[in-house]
Each structure stands twice: as structure tokens, then as C-alpha cells.
Design a protein around this nucleic acid. Structure first.
Lengths: 162, 162
DNA sequence: AGGGTGAATGTTATAATGTTCTACATTTGC
DNA sequence: GCAAATGTAGAACATTATAACATTCACCCT
């Protein structure tokens, strides 16, 4: 992984993975849901990459582990993780990212850098609000809102006009 | 097609298809782009259905015409139509809809009814604005914004709690 | 008109992705 | 310890998207 491919806001990556896993454990415990080894490993892989990962990327990584997984294993793990809000699915990429606000009620907005592939998840309640307003203007009852912004992250924008 | 599957805001469907095709022609002319028979036919099919259509749905309809098309034909036509803003891709459905504001600079927001499958495209400049603000707060430079809301359209909401 | 040029299309095959099904193992609650 | 619930594995299937290359077509130039 090249330096420019790292998350643009530098951070202690190991710590962030550890935090995510610890959060996941406590959330699952609270819901009497079982964070099995396979599920935990998938979540860990997703956080390690720190970028959107397709189901088959995860599959390949599991294979590299020596873990002989099949597609359903991955999809089920992803479904589970999604259900408890531990990962989000990015529709425009058919891929998954770890949720930065697991456990907190939120409506995510995703900023996806098309140069380094990093994804930043914002809570942005103002965005949700405006969207809800626009929908209710035409008497539409929203159920699930997808907001995905692709563009350039600050680091890549700087790098680009060097 | 059942009555409940029709676009919820009743309208003269033939006229709307005709308008869309006429718009398309003039837009292509203005850009020296060729709206060939295949491309025009694909656009027409999409408008006829008036709901999100997968590439393979289009393919099947072309086959019904007696037109012996293969996947690349459809994908190429769709790419072309997208390029000139004549159709939009709905990422969360892997499908395409006709653009209601072709030729006008806009940032669409899609309201997708998961009961009748109809899609309403709103211009919603307020939404774009808030999203841009949120992005620039973290110094992210947006390029392409996807806003897709799935839920219940007024007609289906009424029908549901009858 | 004839011929060259590049865009558009056709054709075939295949890659990549996502879902479903059945059988079997493991865990859990009683 | 036993039955029920849940989780796992592997294969088959379905869907979506591309690659590579041949062919046709529209247009421009002389």
C-alpha cells in the first residue's frame, strides 16, 4: 500500500481497528448477537483496508488467511454486520466500509475519494433534514436514504495541483 | 402493466416519451453527437417503462423487437445517453431512468418507491447546497453526488394504509 | 463518384459480482 | 444430554459488466 493510498487524515490505524472491534463486541453483547470468529474477521479486514471492499475482496483476503470461505459466508457476515450498523454498504461501488459511528443513531453521508479510494463518513444531520423536507414537499415517505459523494479528498486535491 | 404500477402523478405518457425524444434529438444536435437508431430505441424503451430498467431488461426488450442485440450494445447506448445527461443511473438499483431535466444543469435527487418502483427525480438545489457545504467543511471537493431515497410514494402510502 | 477515416455496431466469449439452496456442524436453552 | 435454533460449507445459479476483434456505416476530402 503506497503512502498516498493511506487515509488522508493520518491516524493510528491499529488503534482504530482495535476500537472498532471493541465497539462491535459491546454492541453485539448488548443485542445478544454473536460476533462469531468469521464475522469478527470480516469486520477486521474491512477496517484494516479502511476503504470500500467488495464482497469478493473480502473473500480473497479470507482465502489468503488460509480460511477456506465461500461467498455465502462473506455475504452472511456482511449482512449481519450491516444489520447491527457495524458496516455500511456503498451502493455506488457495490462495496462495504466500516461504520465510524456504530451504535449511534445516524444517517450517514459518504465522501469517497476517487483517487485514493478512502471513504469518510459524516453524520451531517443537516443533510438528512433537507432531504426529508424535499421529500415531504412531494408527499414522499422516505425509508432509506443514500448519500454518496465522490470527489477528491484534501490530500489528493493538494497532490493533484502540485 | 397494472394501474397501480403507473406513475403516480398521472400524465399523458405518449406525450412525455415524445417530448423526451425530441429533447434528446435537439441536445445531441447541439453537441454534434449522433443519436443513432439503437441509442434512440434504448432511450425510448426507458421512457416507455418510466421506471428504473436494468441493462438486461433493456436487452430483453430489444430482443422482443427482433433486434438481435448483445450486452455491449446496450451498455454502450446507456453510456452514451448518460454522457449527454439523457438518462441517469440509479446506483442503488443498478438500473437506469430517463432524465426529466435533460439539458438543464442540475443535480438530481431520486425518490424511489419500493412498492410501485416509480422514480421521481427532483432538482432540489437546497439539497445540493447543504451537501456541498458539509463536504467543504472537511475540505472535500465533490465531483459527483448520488442522492437516492427509497420509500413510499403518496399513492402507495395511501393504498397501504387502506 | 471513389476511397479513406474514424465512429458506431455486431459477435463471441468471459470476467466479476451477487444470490439461493441443501446438507451438515455447532451452539444454546432447557 | 437432547431438541431446537443458529451458523457454516460448498455448489449451482443468476445477474451485471467487459474485453477483444471483426464489420458496417456516415462523413469528409479530393
Amino acid at each position: 500500500m503506497s503512502a498516498s493510498a493511506l487515509p488522508y487524515r493520518q491516524h493510528n490505524h491499529d488503534a482504530c481497528i482495535a476500537d472498532a472491534l471493541a465497539d462491535a463486541k459491546s454492541i453485539c453483547q448488548r443485542h445478544n448477537a454473536r460476533l462469531t470468529a468469521a464475522r469478527e474477521r470480516v469486520l477486521e479486514l474491512i477496517w484494516q483496508s479502511h476503504r470500500p471492499l467488495g464482497a469478493y475482496d473480502v473473500l480473497a483476503m479470507l482465502a489468503r488467511d488460509g480460511h477456506n470461505a465461500a461467498p455465502p459466508t462473506v455475504y452472511r457476515a456482511l449482512d449481519f454486520l450491516q444489520q447491527y450498523g457495524l458496516v455500511h454498504r456503498i451502493a455506488s461501488l457495490n462495496a462495504f466500509v466500516g461504520c465510524s459511528h456504530a451504535g449511534i443513531r445516524h444517517q450517514g453521508m459518504f465522501l469517497i475519494c476517487h483517487r485514493c479510494s478512502n471513504v469518510l463518513e459524516l453524520a451531517a444531520p443537516a443533510v438528512s433534514e433537507v432531504i426529508d423536507d424535499a421529500a415531504s414537499d412531494v408527499r414522499f415517505r422516505p425509508d432509506n436514504v443514500t448519500v454518496e459523494v465522490s470527489g477528491l479528498c484534501p490530500a489528493c486535491a493538494d497532490a493533484a495541483h502540485e
